[in-house]
């Protein structure tokens, strides 16, 4: 059934780790960049705590550009960036650049929309109690939108698994690259199949864990 799997077992394990590596680090950076970006988007929006039309529109436009460029084009865009910053456009580290560029703006929008759910009244109550903008961000906006943010992280992570397979083909590394090089191009369908199954399992685990976290922090019902 799987003639090539035993000989490729080390490669399979390595590729799995590469995928997990790319996904987790891209996710980390996407959250580190996307969360403040999302907070800025919401705070500067009209009628919010720090309404500022120019900044809001500038950030919104940047986010929209990155979100509307097809991912394969984003990969090409980030090749020179990776080269400039880490000296190479090859390997899992280089792939992380385009993965972050593709997912951080997306995540920022998810943060913005879940924070928009926090009611005006609750924010005003905090102001009436003498909260600073900073207090409102940390003690109101973030905790109150936690289920939405965790759901957003989950969606982003699942997306990153798919994108990492594509990025891997170009930059080299991960289950996507293995499926393409060692599976499809080498006429080894069992390798292609195993790569696919592993990707599905990773996505399932992420989704399951994400749903679990969302349920843990959601006290709305």
């Amino acid at each position: 059934m799987f003639p090539n799997v035993p000989t490729y077992s080390d490669r399979i394990i390595q590729a799995t780790f590469e995928t997990l590596y790319m996904v987790s680090f891209s996710l980390l950076f996407a959250v580190i960049l996307g969360l403040p970006l999302g907070v800025l988007l919401i705070l500067t929006s009209p009628g919010h705590l720090l309404p500022n039309r120019p900044i809001h529109q500038l950030l919104g436009t940047i986010v929209n550009i990155f979100r509307s460029v097809p991912y394969i084009v984003l990969i090409l865009w980030m090749i020179p960036v990776a080269r400039a910053l880490i000296g190479t456009s090859f390997g899992t580290n280089a792939a992380i650049f385009s993965l972050v560029a593709g997912s951080a703006p997306f995540f920022a929008r998810l943060v913005e929309s879940s924070m928009r759910e926090v009611s005006r009244g609750v924010i005003e109550a905090a102001q009436a109690m003498g909260a600073r903008t900073w207090d409102i961000i940390w003690k109101v906006l973030l905790p109150e939108s936690m289920p939405g943010i965790f759901a957003g992280i989950t969606v982003t992570a699942v997306g990153l698994v798919g994108y990492s397979a594509m990025a891997g083909v170009v930059a080299g590394g991960g289950l996507g690259a293995m499926a393409w090089n060692d599976g499809y191009n080498s006429f080894k369908n069992d390798i292609l199949f195993v790569a696919t199954v592993l990707l599905i399992i990773i996505v399932q685990l992420i989704q399951w864990f994400g749903d679990f976290l969302v349920r843990r922090v959601d006290h709305r019902s």
């Binding site: 009611s119 009244g121 609750v122 005003e124 109550a125 905090a126 102001q127 009436a128 109690m129 003498g130 909260a131 207090d135 003690k139 109101v140 905790p143 109150e144 936690m146 922090v217 006290h219 709305r220």
Partner: peptide, 29 residues
């Protein structure tokens, strides 16, 4: 403002906090 309490029609509690934690909020501030 800390010396002026306010209550609301729709309560405006933080649903991410328990009753006790909601009361802690202004004290934290």
């Amino acid at each position: 403002r800390m010396k002026i309490g306010m209550i609301f029609q729709h309560f405006n509690l933080l649903w991410s906090r328990t009753a006790l934690e909601n009361v802690l909020f202004p004290l934290e501030l």
